[in-house]
Design a protein around this nucleic acid. Structure first.
Length: 782
DNA sequence: TCCTCGTATGGTCGG
DNA sequence: CATACGAGGA
């Protein structure tokens, strides 16, 4: 990453300040280029570090922290905020390495949300919260809102809770409490929006709960209304660092400004070209306006890119140039040219997945005339998570190891949420939402009626649901089956709660809770194919408890951290969304699905027009700049969406790739031409012209085949002839063996694919020719 | 109260 | 295509 020549040149050309001289021996400074060094050494006053993709931003940030400490600043005087847990973790690790010791000493390095939780636990009473408030996730939030909508006699079909949730989130992102919602928004949600918002906040208060947006909103409110508290922290946090500043929303911006007002020692790092979170309230305006907000701010541009080849860089720059109102940076690199960005069109999404799979294997073996790359050096970045399926299907059938990053989250699985609900009630008995979730899970004969009874009693006596249930049980007001079962459940919670308070071993306790409540048993008795997997997940959950001191600590962690990173064994190809890829880099990157409507996404364009397209374009920029050596963009002419075949045109962003940095590939034998062959000798603009493509013979042929494929029963798919005997040689219930997944039982047959419940790997769909009878498994020399 | 089946309906992106 | 929900029967 670094070059000594550079530093020599710098030292010769630029007179060093005394401080720099004094710190000259510090190794973290020697590794920096001039711009990075300036950003690191300007400790006093506001600094905006405009850091392009791959310009060593994290390095500069961590060096700055190290430098602060070197100058005698204590770790707890530094407030360092990031957006994602991933970024926080990485920074912790890097700072730790700089200092050569544990970073326990940096208590205020974390995400906005994590830091706000910490503050709110201390000062929550100023907004009516007890310090043990619970944090609702999106699911809880929606269910709560739905209750309120129904209670207000509004048709929740026409006015869905989801819509209300995003409306309220939007207000919270803009730091608007119910009283502050502008009149212009009064007509929102059938003119009931503001009213429902206020009701929701009230409800949260009585539940002693907050949602994600509240974490910021409440802290801003406290800072604005309690000068003494604000001042305390202004004095405390002498130095503030903010990562990904382009992604801050208004509430976060206000929060930062309030804290930095006094000493103005704030260093914001960001890249306006990588602002991709507008949909959740991010305001690029915050970064564009920095110099106005903090007069006298020093702006440092990091423009030397250490990550990508010139072709990749130029392609990315070409695309992003289409955006207006940028701060503007000119990225450069001294690396060798390398490969051009590769562009290829496919017949449909499955072809695309097949081609990419083969390409990945070829690159792994090094048979493309290119450097060979292990699987963990390669990544597929998609726009929308549903695109991942095609790749998973394909990779499963060819046995290509992959991992999905940020896929369906572990903690969002039903069984995990259920188990967590038990833990939540055990820790805080008035967590009504959690109680409601599990009071009839497993089935205890508590139906709608019984639950309504409990809720009525809770309202009448102003108690939690648990206490209300206790009353009803002892008063004998619950009927038959429910009575004994609920009584038993309450006894259980009393016991478990006592155990929590006695600080008994929380891991054993968790197991006991799941055992005694009958929850584990419920899944053991369940005969659906998912059940074993769910039990497995529960074990996983128990294992996760090991790294925490107690249940409360664990619950807090889970509320804020939702990523799962169970990673076992060998190298794997990564599949993730473009959003999840921000901040990462890979030698080899595939960018599939560049079709208008998918990318840029139709929805984004419909909802936000030009602004939407610009954000999508930044997403394209982020995608391309993830690649170090080889970047391959592809699109498919046809894709099935909702089970319907739909044809699409290549993305407009493809037109924006500079011709001289792109190699147009043709996929041999796919559809005898198509885009690549339409006009091989002319320039790329023409070759890739969307109107031309639409009228080209290749396109027509694609259309025609698209029609026939909808109805036809193709005997040939994906260029491979299906072996009829392979299909018929397995029957439902057969024991079979698969090289990668091991032994399993055939649950169903669908053409050439078999639904198999593997003993170890769970339910999978696998092509028949990869399967042998279990009895014959030993004979096969794998 | 529970369970099953049918229908409708919807799919960015995350702390 | 997948899931979510409502209606209806056990």
């Amino acid at each position: 990453m670094s070059s000594f020549d550079e530093n020599d040149a710098f030292e010769a050309a630029v007179p060093l300040s005394q401080r720099a001289m004094a710190a000259r021996s510090a190794p973290y400074l020697d590794e920096l280029n001039p711009a990075q060094r300036e950003a690191v050494e300007t400790l006093q006053g506001p600094v905006l570090m405009l850091a392009g993709a791959g310009t060593g931003k994290t390095k500069a940030l961590t060096a700055r922290i190290a430098h602060l400490m070197n100058q005698g600043v204590r770790p707890n005087e530094i407030l360092a905020v990031t957006f994602t847990n991933k970024a926080a973790r990485e920074m912790k690790g890097r700072v730790g390495r700089h200092l050569g010791e544990a970073v326990e000493g940096m208590p205020w390095l974390g995400t906005f949300h994590a830091i706000c939780v910490k503050l709110l636990r201390r000062h929550g009473e100023l907004v009516g919260l007890k310090s043990n408030f619970t944090i609702l996730d999106t699911d809880d939030q929606i269910r709560l809102l739905k209750q309120l909508i129904v209670a207000a006699n509004i048709d929740d079909k026409r006015w869905p809770a989801r819509a209300l949730a995003s409306l309220i989130d939007g207000w919270k992102n803009r730091a608007l409490t119910p009283e502050k919602v502008p009149n212009a928004d009064a007509s929102a949600f059938d003119h009931k929006g503001t009213e429902l918002y206020a009701a929701y906040q009230e409800r949260l208060k009585t539940l002693n709960a907050v949602d994600f947006g509240d974490l910021l909103l409440h802290m801003v409110t406290i800072f604005q209304t309690h000068g003494d508290v604000l001042e305390q922290y202004q004095r405390w946090f002498r130095y503030i660092l903010v990562d990904e500043y382009q992604d801050t929303n208004v509430a976060q911006y206000l929060w930062l400004r309030l804290l930095a007002q006094k000493h103005q020692n704030i260093c914001c790092v960001g890249d306006d070209d990588q602002s991709i979170y507008g949909w959740r309230g991010a305001e690029v305006g915050n970064i564009l306006r920095f110099e106005k907000d903090f007069p006298g701010a020093k702006v440092v541009r990091l423009e030397q890119n250490y990550r990508s080849t010139p072709h990749i860089l130029a392609a990315a720059s070409g695309v992003i140039a289409g955006n207006k109102g940028r701060l503007g940076k000119t990225l450069w690199t001294d690396r060798d040219d390398g490969e051009k960005v590769r562009l290829i069109g496919h017949w449909d999404g499955e072809e695309e997945a097949r081609w990419i799979g083969e390409e990945i294997e070829a690159l792994q073996r090094g048979t493309r005339g290119l450097r060979s790359h292990e699987l963990d050096q390669q990544a597929i970045l998609v726009r929308a998570s549903h695109q991942m399926r095609a790749f998973e299907d394909r990779f499963l059938t060819i046995g290509l190891p992959y991992k999905v990053i940020g896929g369906p989250r572990f903690y969002e699985r039903m069984e995990i949420r259920d188990a967590m609900a038990y833990f939540r009630v055990a820790c805080s008995p008035d967590d009504d939402l959690a109680f409601e979730r599990i009071v009839n899970t497993p089935k205890r004969g508590v139906g709608d009626k019984a639950l309504q009874n409990i809720q009525r009693a809770a309202r009448a006596n102003e108690t939690s649901l648990l206490e209300a249930a206790r009353l009803l049980v002892s008063a004998g007001e619950l009927k038959g089956k429910a009575r004994g079962a609920v009584g038993q459940l309450i006894e259980g919670f009393d016991r478990w709660r006592a155990a929590v308070q006695n600080n008994e071993n929380h891991i054993e306790l968790a197991e006991i809770i799941l055992e005694e409540s009958g929850y584990t048993e419920m899944w053991q008795n369940d005969k659906t194919p998912e059940a074993p997997g769910r039990l497995e997940n529960l074990k996983e959950l128990i294992k996760a408890l090991e790294s925490f001191e107690n249940l409360q600590g664990f619950l807090e962690h889970v509320a804020l951290i939702m990523d799962n990173e169970a990673d076992d064994g060998g190298p794997k190809v990564s599949i993730m969304t473009l959003h999840a890829a921000k901040g990462l880099e890979f030698p080899v990157v595939f960018l599939p699905g560049w079709e208008d409507g998918l990318f840029p996404s139709q929805r984004s364009m419909d909802e936000s027009g030009l602004k939407g397209v610009e954000e999508e374009r930044r997403l394209a920029y982020v995608g391309i700049t993830r690649a170090e050596e080889l970047c391959t963009i592809s699109f498919a002419g046809n894709r099935r969406i909702f089970g319907q075949w739909q044809s699409a045109l290549p993305s407009r962003f493809i037109d924006e790739l500079p011709e001289e940095n792109v190699d147009v590939l043709t996929a041999p034998g796919l559809y005898g031409g198509g885009y690549g062959a339409a006009a091989p000798s002319s320039g790329m603009q023409e070759r890739m012209d969307r109107a031309d493509a639409y009228n080209s013979p290749g396109w027509k042929r694609m259309q025609a085949r698209s029609q026939s494929r909808q109805t036809a029963q193709p005997t040939e798919t994906k260029g491979l002839v299906i072996d009829a005997t392979a299909v018929s040689s397995h029957a439902k219930g057969d024991r079979v063996f698969h090289q990668k997944f091991g032994y399993g039982t055939v649950m169903g047959i669908e053409g050439d694919k078999l639904d198999i419940e593997f003993d170890k790997a769970g339910a999978k769909k696998v092509v028949a020719r990869f399967i042998v009878d279990a009895a014959k498994a030993d004979e096969i020399p794998f």
